[in-house]
Write a protein that binds this DNA or RNA. Sequence first.
DNA 1: TATAATACGCAATAATGTTGCATTTGTTCT
DNA 2: AGAACAAATGCAACATTATTGCGTATTATA
Lengths: 136, 136
Amino acid sequence: MKALESHAKNMLKAAGLYCTRARLCVIMALLRENRPITQEQITQALDAPFDRVTIYRTLDSLGKADLVHRVFLEERACHYELSHHCSKTQCHPHFTCTQCGQTHCLTDLKLPLAHHHGYVIQRQQVRLAGLCPQCR
Amino acid sequence: MKALESHAKNMLKAAGLYCTRARLCVIMALLRENRPITQEQITQALDAPFDRVTIYRTLDSLGKADLVHRVFLEERACHYELSHHCSKTQCHPHFTCTQCGQTHCLTDLKLPLAHHHGYVIQRQQVRLAGLCPQCR
DNA sequence: TATAATACGCAATAATGTTGCATTTGTTCT
DNA sequence: AGAACAAATGCAACATTATTGCGTATTATA
Ligand SMILES: [Mn+2]
Ligand SMILES: [Mn+2]
Ligand SMILES: [Zn+2]
Ligand SMILES: [Zn+2]
């Protein structure tokens, strides 16, 4: 059994979720891509064909188990990625290049958590836009 | 003529845009609300009835003139707000309460602009989630 | 292997946003 | 004020993304 597959199985086991074909395939696709992608991109990246609805429901169950979360970019469709590079309070920043359009996960960039009087801040998400190393 | 209306007219004049009923109404609605709202909320907040498409096209033209910009929250629909509380490089942070669901503009909270080697960062947007003063 | 809980596929529907085109409105110039 | 032109508007149709209902198939467990 490939390393990716056993990784995916372990994630599902640890989360107490049924270990189904669809969940394994989606997790493996997200592991391979390692960036936020849409339902459509996930569907295309899968080895086996699955119904759109199944992908959405899979993402939903993985989301409730905190294995996956949504990323909101300047595009119509939601993007999804694995949560394993994020802390509970802070997802890593996402950078989108205004030139080439690519989005990069800046997993090594740690920004200080904001404070504001009277507010309890539980989570912080940062979106950056500009020029990527290739395009500047 | 009311202060809101002349404010709206000045914004359109300064931007070199036609001063139309729809644009005036939309800007005045956004001035009154003073928080990010959806096309549907804008339409409901208007005195006169306008077609959905007109609202979208109005937001588009105001957006191109940098009078308005989109705000992405954890909801399906895009939200829109006036840009007058934002600098070119950084929009003020938006806080959404996980309890009551309300979104607040933290216009007085200034976060340092991120730096990352090799990247030219032109714009930064921050979304915060947690408990608002009423709900904590 | 039997059972119950859960996930899946398919069809239908909802929500949000966009496009084409004929008509109306706003601006500018006389 | 009136004419001429550019731009905005309304309406119908369409596109994209996500959700719901329900019957069937798969999974975990004993
Ligand atoms: Mn990421
Ligand atoms: Mn705001
Ligand atoms: Zn680039
Ligand atoms: Zn609250």
